[in-house]
Design a protein around this nucleic acid. Sequence first.
DNA 1: AAGGGCACCAACCGCCTGTAA
DNA 2: ATTACAGGCGGTTGGTGCCCT
Length: 298
Amino acid sequence: MDVKARDCVPNVQQSSEEDHMELKRGPWTVEEDFKLIDYIATHGEGRWNSLARCAGLNRSGKSCRLRWLNYLRPDVRRGNITLQEQLLILELHSRWGNRWSKIAQHLPGRTDNEIKNYWRTRVQKQAKQLKCDVNSKQFKDTMRYLWMPRLVERIQAATAASTTAVTAASTTTLTSVVGTGQTVSGDDRLGGAQVTSSSYTLENSSTTAASSDSFGTQVSPVSDFTDYYSSSNNISINNPNPNCLEATQDLSGNYYNHGLDFQSLEQNNPWLDTIDASNNLFNAEDFYFLQQQFNFTM
DNA sequence: AAGGGCACCAACCGCCTGTAA
DNA sequence: ATTACAGGCGGTTGGTGCCCT
């Protein structure tokens, strides 16, 4: 079906009447969602203003477009941001800044809005807690030389854990995700599949006793984004610029630890007691490292 | 149990750009 | 070349639910 919304010629009188009607705003109802889905299924997307009228939605074209792209589109990927996605977001943001849509293009199924929200609620929060600007070199270096390598370590750990549990050939498909302790639950609103993590957290995947999820979120041990990384000790990424992960090439973790024995440092450093490691981007050992590197004052 | 604070995220807003007339 | 409109984008807001006191 290739009939576009532009083919719909709205009734002039009706259009005129609607011009005087206040366009509806705020949360979408199930009925509105179905109207939009039905219309797009029949006529396709595009020409959002006329689409809104023709579909009988008292909404702005922009509102319809946003609702479709960010929520109703069948390939929208919902659920927790995986470790791989976190790493990719950090890397791409370091390259492109707040170019959310561009970043989103490299995370299939994720919307720019979702990535933007993730950045603001998680990453900026951490910068705030560290009392530094999210755009400062200090914080960027922190991300690049501490946080991202830590993520890589955790991805490695998670990959290793999942490899033992799953047969070799099935690491990237939804089927395999189900097989490794995650659940696929129906989206009760629209019937789309929604992947949720049932039990896996970074506490499980961490290589150190004190480590916790960088963000306090549940993450998936494997994901569709496994394709972005090889399982070898060198990351490869399907990206035009192979240098984009230059700071995280070595997955051994040793180099990035700079020889510090984090666990012993942590045990002997009362300063670390003040840090809430459970819900921070950085855990206690990371904070110690930060202090060493950037002379942070808390 | 209540309410205050907080995190998350859907949705809106305003500006910019591209394109067709 | 100009103008009007549609679409895209980044920033911001407001509602909701959860957690803590």
